[in-house]
Design a protein around this nucleic acid. Structure first.
Lengths: 226, 226
DNA sequence: TGGTTCTATGATGTATACAACGCCACGTTC
DNA sequence: GAACGTGGCGTTGTATACATCATAGAACCA
């Protein structure tokens, strides 16, 4: 792996380790040893440490004093918590995006939605890796278009984790079709400046994703009154 | 059976620098030099760096490559963004707390609310520092009682920042009285398991705080200069 | 034999030396 | 005089040596 010239070693390490985590390279519970990573990336332990601490602040690895970094496993409860937060934060972001998004951002959202549709239904088999990547960009762009800069760093943790767990392998054809439909609904709501619509679609969209991931069992969470 | 729990130098540095930030020791725009901090705390630059990177991940300082850490100033827009996020996240937390809080936590919330009332109206002059600290614990405990562990790390950034800016100096007697009232409303809603009520009170509570801090017009800034 | 202590080992935590880079002042050139 | 290049200086970025801690397993004792 070649390291680009202008990148700091610590950033290079961060990107590399994060990619490894996304690719599921280390099973949950693995011990990420600084020395090993340093040898592999051909840099010293110092930037490795910095990268691991940053990943820990995003909860992508877990730290214990003198024990170092471990790859966490995602329990059912973890995923429930993450989806609950995504429902709140991303729906808020969608509503704000409807009020604040610039035309260029709306255009980009539309083309991303189209690209996701193509990756899902254009060829013979859906390209799940590409769908994940495009979907990620779509959701991140909505957060960006919200205009709330701090929201960006908050969702950095929670948007990417379902990617790690390879969400889209679980989508069947009809679930994927509806998900694609939500994306176009979102584009239309945001383009039209209809915040309430955007909020509602995003809430529904993420609940649907949670359903595919986790099913109905143990599903009385989320503070819905009855 | 309690372990001695020796503090790591990096954690010591983190706590120290964070307290300095809370105390307004460095004006916005200040350059936090690693060497200076290391000399002052009598440790080496390595744990200082770790502490600064952690503070940067919480947006309490800003980093630029090869330029180091700077103390950010809080613009009006920053505060608007933070309050908008608090409205969403803390109201969600309150609703979840109504469903999940343990009796001991409810008791502690009640005693904190009482203590805040006493600090505000018990003596001759309100003790703003104590109020801030108790208020902080109250809000953090609600987040904790929500049962969503990830929510904790998310709000770590945004709950503490208004503390830095010394919110409560701006509360007059009637605003403080209403704020104290909100706290008891919250305790009652959570104790009764009424999530909808808890959500509504918390939303209102934070909107009220925003009003005191920022007012209705986008006029005034709250930095420390001039 | 079972349990405890001790020691070896390898990890993380910290200190420090060195390299790379940005800023600024000075000087040169046009 | 202004624009631009250049070198010194101080800072951050990285490498590496050393200190400290946790754990496994041998050694030892009851």
């Amino acid at each position: 792996m070649n390291k680009p010239e202008r990148l700091r070693a610590a950033d290079f390490a961060y990107i590399s380790i994060r990619e490894g985590l996304s690719a599921g390279r280390w099973p949950p519970g693995s011990h990420l040893r600084e020395t090993e990573l340093a040898a592999e990336l051909k840099i010293s332990r110092t930037p490795i440490r910095e990268a691991l601490r940053k990943l820990a602040s995003e909860q992508l690895v877990q730290f214990e004093p003198h024990l170092g970094a471990r790859v966490p496993g995602w329990s059912h409860q973890d995923m429930e918590e993450i989806f609950a937060l995504r429902v709140e934060l991303e729906s808020f972001a969608a509503g704000q995006a409807a009020l604040n998004a610039k035309p260029a951002q709306v255009d980009e959202l539309r083309s991303l939605a189209t690209a996701i549709e193509k990756a899902a239904f254009g060829g013979d088999a859906p390209d799940n890796v590409k769908i994940s990547e495009l979907n990620n960009r779509f959701h991140r762009l909505i957060v960006l278009a919200s205009g709330n800069r701090r929201l960006n760093s908050l969702v950095a943790t929670i948007i990417d984790i379902p990617l790690v767990v390879r969400t889209f392998a679980r989508f069947d054809k009809t679930a994927m079709a509806r998900s694609v439909g939500h994306h176009f609904d979102l584009v239309e709501a945001i383009a039209g400046g209809n915040a309430d619509w955007a909020v509602a679609v995003m809430r529904a969209h993420i609940h649907a994703g949670r359903q595919v991931m986790l099913g109905t069992d143990a599903g009385e969470l989320l503070g819905r009154r009855h």
